[in-house]
Design a protein around this nucleic acid. Structure first.
Lengths: 232, 232
DNA sequence: TCAAAAGTGTTTCTGCTACACCCATGC
DNA sequence: GCATGGGTGTAGCAGAAACACTTTTGA
């Protein structure tokens, strides 16, 4: 390895914000772990940990997520990098934060995996005290979610692959924190041509079963190439 | 310093993308430096360098920018963090990229500052070969600029504090790569109430002088608090 | 007086908003 | 048969798009 520098180096970690949509309570939830070790032993925190020397940042995030929560094959997207000199009592630690949107049931009863004492969904409206600067990281994550959901079709990631339009509407109402008129929402989203109408219906609901839809990724990408831009 | 870990650590650098708008050529330019030392000696690269142990990431970016280009007091915004294990021949180097938008004249004749052989504006359409993965970083930066300019009033940062509406329109046409009808643009931007109409006019133009405007930040922020959302 | 860009008004059309009722289903 | 949410049509309005001419100024 030529040209090697020998300056002192910071440590680098990754942290993961896993968001889910709780339709019943019209709430956005986040997956937190209870730390096994100091610093902040027993404190709630975002899942995360140190990056190995030969591993991609996103790979590190996925590894830590699985080690601490059992979740795997989650699509993570980079959020922001936090590097205030005193954000970690162990010394200079720079953390690259990732976030993901998943359907709640995918980790409905998250097992405390090997590297965490407990794993639990928390409402983003009622958070416990968090370790490090994780409250700030989470705030930035929520802000990103709210900002992005209007202009990019990422909301679907929070639902099952097949969903009813009323679920989608509830989701947008929750994230955007405002009411959306039923008929207009339906017209708008259907007129975008990014949903596949399925010949399937809800099961076991105590009322008329709604038709199910699926996000049509291929068509969405085709439309984007033609200059279309998604907007709610 | 309790709980200190002694895992091997990556190095951390910052890189800066400085964008400017070249109205004459309807072009977006980027400020590059020619490297003084190996690796990639003499190669063109984004200004940047190693983060000190007790310095904020953004502070590091500002320091490196000044050392290599002489530019100071520039408003930098974090773009993305690049950490592929082999992106740097010196070993594991993770780079946090920042970007800024500045009026071209602010660094029109950039002096080669102490830490770079040369400093030069390049058209983003005709880039030289770049060091490391700086071509990818720049591509992400351009993508962010294009995506963000429509929904956030950041375009003004590329103009002088006082500008004519035709300059603003040229800017949007350049970034969005499409023509914008003059009358409709004028109506739209003025109806947003985010511009202060000045009692000043262009000087020394060989035709009727246009009225100058200024971005009204206070009013913009007030409007945002009331639920307004900027969109071109 | 010419060249070059500034500045302006109206019509058309599209898409958003607002609104109320019937339908299908499970219990 | 009733409670619950699913599903639909239309009228009015606001804002986007399309369009051409007059004004001002410096050279």
């Amino acid at each position: 390895m030529p040209y090697t520098y020998e300056y002192p180096r910071p440590s680098v970690t990754v942290d993961c914000i896993i968001f889910a949509f709780d339709r019943e309570n019209k709430d956005i939830k986040v997956l937190l772990i209870q730390r096994l070790a100091d610093p902040y032993k027993d404190c709630w925190a975002l899942p995360g940990g140190f990056v190995d020397m030969d591993e991609n940042l996103k790979t590190a995030a996925m590894r830590e997520l699985e080690e601490e929560t059992g979740l795997r094959d989650i699509f993570l997207e980079q959020l922001y990098t936090f590097g205030a000199p005193n954000r970690d009592p162990r010394g200079r630690v720079i953390s690259v934060a990732y976030y993901a949107l998943i359907p709640l049931h995918k980790a409905q009863v998250p097992v405390a995996a090997s590297d965490a004492k407990q794993v639990k969904w928390y409402s983003t409206k009622q958070l416990p005290d968090l370790a490090f600067d994780h409250d700030q990281i989470l705030a930035i994550g929520l802000q990103r979610l709210k900002g992005k959901v209007r202009y990019q079709p990422i909301g679907f990631e929070l639902l099952n692959e097949k969903f009813a339009l009323s679920e989608l509407r509830d989701l947008y109402e929750t994230i955007l924190e405002k009411e959306i008129e039923k008929r207009n929402f339906r017209k708008k989203i259907l007129s975008m041509n990014v949903l596949k109408e399925l010949e399937e219906y809800q099961q076991g609901v105590p009322h008329r079963a709604a038709r199910l839809y699926q996000f049509d990724k291929e068509n969405y990408e085709r439309l984007v190439n033609e200059g279309f831009s998604f907007e709610i």
